[in-house]
């Protein structure tokens, strides 16, 4: 109605300009890595790359894909993420479902038991000693087990279960089904949306995490991609990471190419999944922060 007919004011123009600048600030640092990673090494070294790639070469990607530590770290991250998410979904739903049932005697007490852990952190050192005591150091379990349940996500799932119609449970119980059967046959098939959300949430956090690997893993064969990324991109450990790389160093590929190429392959899955991530995360962050 009237809204659409109102003239664009000077403010609208300035506002739109601010937004365009914002878009540039958000995207340029990421775009810059992409164009440097595929530009010719000597141009990169001379600082000639600004807005578009110069003399495009995929050499940096050839180098990192033939580099054993990087490939193995990438594979490790894929394994940690898929196994981790499986454990997350299993444990989170086992926790959320009973807490969503009104007849679950003691659920307030159990809820308190769980929520308290959000407020009081046991601390880095004691948790390290527990993981150590369980013999999990330098195993995949140290990465996927200590973070099995995220309390925020568990609350989201519980809220979802609570919103399912009570009649579902009653009729199933009437037919003689027990809680396990109801959960498995009735609740889970209806929970695809929340499970999809949880999968994305947990997958992103596994994919991006580096701190557990930093403190629990010493064996470099177990390193996830984020640790390799840290070694190469932040500590500048390019040559020792990849013997292959030092051979072709020089004119065609420089450290910068390698660094940004590794970053790019590490964020590629995030970029590919971004449309889904955005949709589910926005919805999820509303549930988590406002209602809960």
């Amino acid at each position: 109605m009237k809204l659409g007919k109102r003239k664009y004011s000077a403010f609208d123009l300035v506002n739109a300009l601010i937004m365009l600048v914002l878009i540039f600030i958000m995207l340029y640092p990421i775009y810059y890595m992409a164009i440097v990673s595929i530009s010719n090494g000597s141009s990169v070294a001379r600082g000639e790359i600004h807005f578009y790639p110069v003399r495009i070469t995929w050499k940096a990607y050839e180098v990192i894909f033939s580099d054993a530590p990087i490939v193995s770290a990438y594979r490790n991250t894929l394994i940690y993420t898929s196994l981790g998410v499986a454990i997350n979904l299993f444990m989170t739903s086992l926790c959320a479902y009973p807490l969503s049932r009104r007849e679950f005697y003691g659920r307030n007490l159990f809820s308190l038991f769980i929520v308290f852990t959000m407020f009081f952190d046991g601390g880095i050192i004691p948790r390290y000693l527990v993981v150590n005591g369980l013999g999990m150091l330098d195993t995949i379990w140290a990465i996927v087990v200590p973070t099995a349940i995220n309390v925020f996500y568990m609350v989201m799932m519980r809220t979802f279960f609570q919103a399912l119609p009570e009649a579902l449970h009653e009729s199933a119980h009437m037919d003689g089904a027990n809680d396990l059967t109801v959960f498995w046959r009735v609740v889970l098939p209806l929970s695809a949306p929340v499970m999809a959300t949880m999968t994305l949430f947990y997958a992103v956090s596994h994919w991006n995490s580096y701190f557990p690997a930093l403190i629990y893993l010493n064996d470099s064969h177990l390193y996830p991609i984020q640790i390799i990324l840290r070694n190469i991109v932040i500590q500048g450990d390019v040559a020792s990471q990849s013997t292959e790389a030092s051979g072709v160093m020089g004119t065609l590929v420089v450290d910068q190419n390698i660094k940004y190429a590794v970053v790019l392959i590490a964020i590629l899955p995030i970029l590919l999944l971004y449309p889904f991530l955005q949709k589910y995360f926005v919805k999820g962050s509303m549930v988590g922060s406002l209602k809960g």
């Binding site: 580096y210 990324l229 991109v233 590490a266 995360f281």
Partner: peptide, 8 residues
């Protein structure tokens, strides 16, 4: 940027 890791 929210989805990029701390390391990145």
């Amino acid at each position: 940027p929210h989805f990029l890791s701390t390391v990145v």
